[in-house]
Design a protein around this nucleic acid. Sequence first.
DNA 1: GGATAACATATTAAATTAGTATGAATTGGC
DNA 2: GCCAATTCATACTAATTTAATATGTTATCC
Lengths: 136, 136
Amino acid sequence: MNISTKTEYAVRALTELALNSADKPVSINDICKNQKLPVKYVEQLFRKLKQNGLVKSIHGAKGGYQLALEMYDISLKDIMEAVDENYVASFCNGNTKEHIYCLGLPCGFSKLWNEIKDHLEKYFDSIKLDQIVAKL
Amino acid sequence: MNISTKTEYAVRALTELALNSADKPVSINDICKNQKLPVKYVEQLFRKLKQNGLVKSIHGAKGGYQLALEMYDISLKDIMEAVDENYVASFCNGNTKEHIYCLGLPCGFSKLWNEIKDHLEKYFDSIKLDQIVAKL
DNA sequence: GGATAACATATTAAATTAGTATGAATTGGC
DNA sequence: GCCAATTCATACTAATTTAATATGTTATCC
């Protein structure tokens, strides 16, 4: 039950964009210099962020990334989902999507796990990038 | 950001106690037979649950475990904490307890991580064993 | 005294996560 | 046109964590 470093790195990187990419794109290199993050790892994260429509990119020299959405339209949940797939999915020992059976038996806990999952998703979705930046 | 199997197993095992250990102790063997869980693994979990005062034990033949507290005094947080130490602690890349520095730099995110941590702890503490049993 | 069951610890195995390596494709500036 | 900077893509390795097993000892009931 932890925030993964993937999520942490993504949040930190997106915060850099939020602060510096309004007019010009910012390169991963610059981001990683500022935040002391591993470049190649963060590259991977950014590809996922792009696939999920959170950032847009400009190729080639002087290229880089910019936010694709307004800060208040990017939630912590969006980030986690993009970067850390099934970030809150594998309850009930991950046996079925519907959580009706666990370990081959009808599972009485699906209700509980689903409620928790729901709560967490809503909570993380309520935290937006502009709020995160405001807390810095 | 998932419920560990440790927590899942512990919840399932404690539910068994909640339902069956009111008068007599219940053995780990019986619990694991019912819930199809690995005995030796669950043994370890129960030792931690005992250390944390959630269950009490009776040695020897006909022995086993019983809840040490009322069901409404055992929260999901208590269980997670007992069985899954630092279940929600390693934010901020786990570098310092206070989350004031990250990777050697003053960390602007400590506020965020701590708020999240706080929220999660309160949430999990609000879910009590009697409610879990009621949802079955 | 034998069966049952908690208690304790060490070890192995599996899975996940983090990070590196290598290289191709794209673009700006000289 | 070429070179540097940069995104894009994938494969691989290393580290860490988590799950589970193995091997016992100790206590208690019958």
